[in-house]
Write a protein that binds this DNA or RNA. Structure first.
Length: 598
RNA sequence: GGCUCCGUAGCUCAGCUGGAUAGAGCAUCCGCCUUCUAAGCGGACGGUCACAGGUUCGAAUCCUGUCGGAGUCGCCA
């Protein structure tokens, strides 16, 4: 009989599914997963219990029937009924060997692609003018970057957009603030007709100083707030001096931010800002009005998107979802206006079928409003827009993380810290002491960045977690460096094998550690599709960790180059090589790169 | 007050479309470097899955309630 190709769980599911159908039960009951214990076989299926309920029969009886049909099929060594009706499946070595060699020969290391690719935009990181990144931006950046990679690897056509915060009230705030601080600058002179200076009047450091002060002042000083609002409206209306000044803010900020992203190994396909859709807003507002969904309310123009009224704090009633504020009473476009115009742009210019917004969980209500408005206006449907929220990083006190001095920890400083720590560790271990200083520094960077990214990505994105500097600086246990270490050990073996002329051959699973490693390798597709479906890289991160762990156990128990039998040597070398391939793919999908040695 | 999320080992977190004895890492303790990198491997210790009911052959997982924590509730993004 011919052995099936592909994932083991799928092969078994097919046999079992057909057996369930044969006795009048749904195919899905044949789904099986890795057995929870070794003595329960390689895979286990719990479908007989559920089937027993629907048929009103004893589950054990059903399990026994299924087992009788499966027993003796190609690839199945043994199938047992246990407990109330569990099916324990033991696989034949030939099936395992088959799968191992298949993964070895596959460029995608056993991962599949989606049947119908979609055009997807991942909106992530969301850097802003005048703000350098702090630890809070770490999540938005690396989760979004990983999701982009995962979607692209699965076959979708994906564009990552930074969605630069370069428009709106904060811009007016910066202008108004600078006007007060340096009123003599030509940008503020309405009669100025010459070209404006090419050199920016401010540095990023200036902007970072000005912005928080202004933001604080605007909350208590109404007069000041009105000035900022006026400046915002004038900027958007196209006042030349303001536009020129704003262009400096944007350039200064963007260049600095790009350097920081580069340090994290993050790049964007699109670096579009909120300002890039400004020209679409007038027509969009007209369109909303024409469709009859733009309503005057309290001096502003809004789109209502609620479906019912709920009790309000003050005892009255309010919509269950707040309306989209399109034009403020000052006549300015708002945050949501820009977001809606961006949706329109993404639909028309990029034919986006799905947009993922990788943004802090706290903005969920805002996105709900915008998405509903988009649906109502007939732009992108509600189901084509997803807010991929994530939790905040808190300090040990449960509040948003602060440094000992009470300030926010800049991302740049955090990166420097982990890099330094990695370099020290390298020095300590003395591994790379014969390497050029430049390569040593590079290894330190890779290890540091891996630690940083993995520490975050191993958590489910949705929940907040405690930011623990010691944990970020620790390179032992379930950490990024542990995964790199597994890669590096395999690479060292491959180098040595090449020197000794040992050639990888056909994989033959014999030892327990080899079997475990193969079964883990086989789980790649499941982890990948899980991460894809749930839009959470932690599932893939967990797989990578399990794979590194399975390899480490194999490494400790099964000598590769020292194996006395030539065929065993060739088989183990091939298994190690297949592991490296899959591990490097998985790490790449997490945005992590492995060095040659460490 | 409305809505959303969370409460699992001393700590940080997985598991949540119901399945066998609830898993990792850290911390603590015990083994393992004359053999491919010990940033490693193996083992021990550690849990009334916040609490109380309910559904079920079976609940950390589903439902209801209570307690505790976080976030959010239109003119900043």
């Amino acid at each position: 009989m011919q052995l099936q190709q592909g994932q083991l769980a799928k092969i078994i599911g097919l046999s079992l599914g057909n057996a369930f159908v044969a006795i009048g039960l749904p195919y899905e009951l044949g789904q099986s997963g890795r057995a929870t214990k070794r003595e329960f076989g390689d895979f286990q299926c719990n479908g007989a219990m559920a089937g027993g309920k629907t048929l009103g029969k004893n589950p054990r009886e059903i399990a026994t029937q299924i087992a009788a049909m499966i027993a003796g099929q190609a690839g199945i060594e043994k199938i047992e009924v246990a407990g109330p009706g569990f099916l324990n499946i033991f696989l034949e070595p030939t099936l395992l060997n088959n799968r191992a060699n298949e993964i070895l020969d596959d460029d995608r290391a056993g991962a599949e692609i989606v049947p119908v690719p979609r055009k997807i935009i991942v909106d992530y990181a969301g850097p802003n003018v005048a703000k350098s990144m702090h630890v809070g931006h770490l999540r938005a950046t690396i989760i979004g970057d990983s999701l982009k990679r995962i979607f692209r690897f699965r076959g979708d056509e994906v564009l990552g957009d930074a969605h630069f915060g370069d428009w709106g009230f904060q811009m007016g705030l910066l202008i108004a603030s600078l006007a007060q601080e340096q009123p003599d600058l030509p940008y503020f002179d309405e009669n100025h007709t010459d070209a404006y200076p090419e050199i920016s009047p401010v540095t990023l450091a200036d902007l970072e100083r000005i912005y928080p002060q202004a933001a604080a002042k605007v909350k208590v000083d109404e007069n000041y707030r009105d000035k900022a609002r006026k400046a915002t409206a004038e900027l958007q209306a196209g006042r030349a001096g303001y536009r020129a000044l704003w262009a400096h803010f944007v350039t200064v900020s963007r260049e600095a931010l790009k350097r920081e992203f580069a340090a994290l190994g993050v790049e964007f396909d699109l670096w579009l800002g909120e300002s890039d859709v400004d020209h679409l807003i007038a027509d969009m507002v007209e369109d909303l009005a024409k469709k009859g969904i733009l309503v005057d309310d309290q001096g502003a123009k809004v789109v209502f998107v609620h479906d019912k009224m709920v009790p309000a704090k003050d005892g009255g009633e309010r919509p269950n979802v707040p309306p989209l504020l399109v034009i403020s009473s000052e006549g300015s476009a708002m945050y949501g206006t820009t977001d809606l115009a961006t949706i329109l742009d993404r639909k028309n210019r990029f034919q986006a079928e799905l947009v993922l917004y990788c943004v802090d969980q706290r903005q969920s209500e805002h996105f709900e409003t915008v998405f509903r408005a988009s649906d109502k206006a007939g732009y992108l449907r509600r189901d084509q827009l997803e807010h991929i929220g994530f939790g905040t990083m808190n300090g040990k006190d449960g509040k948003p993380f602060k440094t000992r001095e009470g300030g926010v920890l800049k991302l740049h400083d955090l990166i420097t810290m982990v890099r330094t720590k990695a370099a020290d560790k390298l020095q300590e271990a003395g591994v790379a002491k014969d390497l050029p200083a430049e390569e040593r520094a590079q290894i330190g960077d890779m290890v540091g960045i891996a630690a940083l990214k993995f520490a975050d990505l191993q958590n489910f994105r949705g929940t907040s977690y405690v930011f623990d500097l010691d944990k970020f600086l620790s390179f032992e246990g379930k950490t990024g460096p542990y995964l790199l270490y597994a890669c590096v050990r395999i690479k060292a073996i491959l180098r040595k094998a090449a020197e000794q002329g040992v050639i990888a051959g056909e994989i033959m699973i014999a030892e327990e550690a080899e079997r475990e490693l193969l079964l883990t390798l086989d789980g790649f597709e499941l982890a990948l599709s899980g991460a894809y479906e749930k839009r959470s890289p932690h599932i893939l991160a967990d797989h990578a960790y399990n794979l590194a762990g399975a390899f480490s156990a194999f490494y400790a128990n099964c000598p590769i180059l020292a194996a006395s039998d030539g065929a065993v040597r060739a088989s183990r070398l091939a298994l190690a090589s297949a592991t490296l391939k899959q591990l490097e793919i998985a790490l790449d999908l997490l945005g992590i790169q492995a060095p040659e040695r460490m």
